[in-house]
């Protein structure tokens, strides 16, 4: 697969001296759903704003569909739809007019049939003549999505689409995203809900302090999560792991009184029984056993902690 968005050494320093992005590199593949995870103030929104043209980068380049966002901004912005985090809508306008306005702004001729179709897809069909101020919060979010899709973009940015949204609407939102992916739209969403990334993303990126800490296939991350660790405390410290136990790839703690065995819970055999037998045969006396499972949350918290 080829990259539709390529971000290189992107830096953004605000006039006040705050550096929101510290040299971000990121390739986003065509047709994927990338979830950007990060705590508040991590730089998620600045990253999106810079790609969309709302914020001017201090250094670095961003290309969308091969076009540079600064020099070919018409071509790049034409490809992008943005759903902002805040519900920014003109309250006195009707749903249909508001969405149609967005289409015109993006240089597309009026197409009522297309707008009506989007509104139907987003369950806004019967609200199209309602004023926006009369809608519920969830409906307003759908209007924002409809506006972002009004000019038939190939890339959709969703900035925390489910922040402060109830469980039911969150599921709806996930369905909408899945539907868009099926239409071939590349989706980048930011979130601080790990479960959201787990539920819908193809790849997960972790951002904190203006830096991308990790970008990985969700399946790889899930595989890491399928692993468990068995910590074995032994009575007498060992200087090195006995040769008889080399097959188990044990990790020895610095003080030599604890050994860690990593195994796959999804495998047919965990190898725990034979390991314990072999430990006894090697003359090691065990004082305690403990198992631990790593979750995406652990990985995330660990990464974020390291950088703060």
């Amino acid at each position: 697969m080829s990259s539709i968005i390529s971000i290189q050494n992107l830096r953004k320093a605000y006039p006040g001296g705050f550096t929101a992005l510290k040299g971000v590199n990121l390739e986003i593949e065509q047709g994927e759903i990338l979830a950007l995870l990060g705590p508040n103030g991590a730089g998620k929104t600045t990253l999106i704003s810079t790609v969309c043209g709302i914020t001017v980068p201090t250094a670095g380049t961003v290309t969308v569909g091969g076009f540079d966002t600064m020099t070919d901004y018409r071509a790049t912005r034409d490809l992008i739809g943005l759903v902002p985090q805040e519900i920014n809508l003109e309250p006195f306008e009707t749903v249909f007019n508001s969405v149609s306005f967005s289409r015109g702004l993006f240089g597309k001729p009026r197409n009522d049939a297309y707008i009506n179709r989007i509104l139907e897809q987003l369950s806004l069909g019967d609200k199209k003549d309602s004023k926006i101020m009369a809608l519920s919060g969830g409906m307003k979010r759908r209007v924002l999505i409809a506006k972002a899709l009004s000019h038939e973009p190939r890339v959709l940015f969703l900035d925390e689409p489910t922040a402060g949204v109830d469980v039911e609407l969150r599921k709806d939102m996930w369905d909408i995203v899945a539907g868009l992916k099926a239409d071939g739209v590349t989706i980048i969403l930011t979130t601080h809900y790990i479960e959201e990334a787990e539920a819908i993303a193809d790849r997960v990126g972790v951002i904190n302090g203006g830096e991308i800490l990790l970008v990985q296939d969700k399946s790889d991350l899930m595989a890491q999560m399928g692993q468990k660790q068995l910590q074995i405390a032994i009575k007498d410290p060992v200087a090195e792991i006995p040769d008889a136990l080399s097959a188990y790839a044990l990790e020895r703690s610095e003080d030599g009184i604890s050994l860690t065995y990593t195994y796959d819970t999804t495998g047919e055999r965990t190898g725990i029984t034979t390991l314990l037998n072999d430990l006894a045969a090697a003359g090691l006396v065990m004082t305690d056993l403990q198992t631990k499972q790593s979750s995406l949350e652990d990985i995330f918290v660990g990464l974020v902690k390291e950088t703060t």
Binding site: C52, G53, I54, R74, P84, N88, L89, E90, S102, L105
Partner: peptide, 11 residues
Amino acid sequence: TGTIYELLSAP
């Protein structure tokens, strides 16, 4: 209203 984001991100 905040809808300026649209003007800024439009071509």
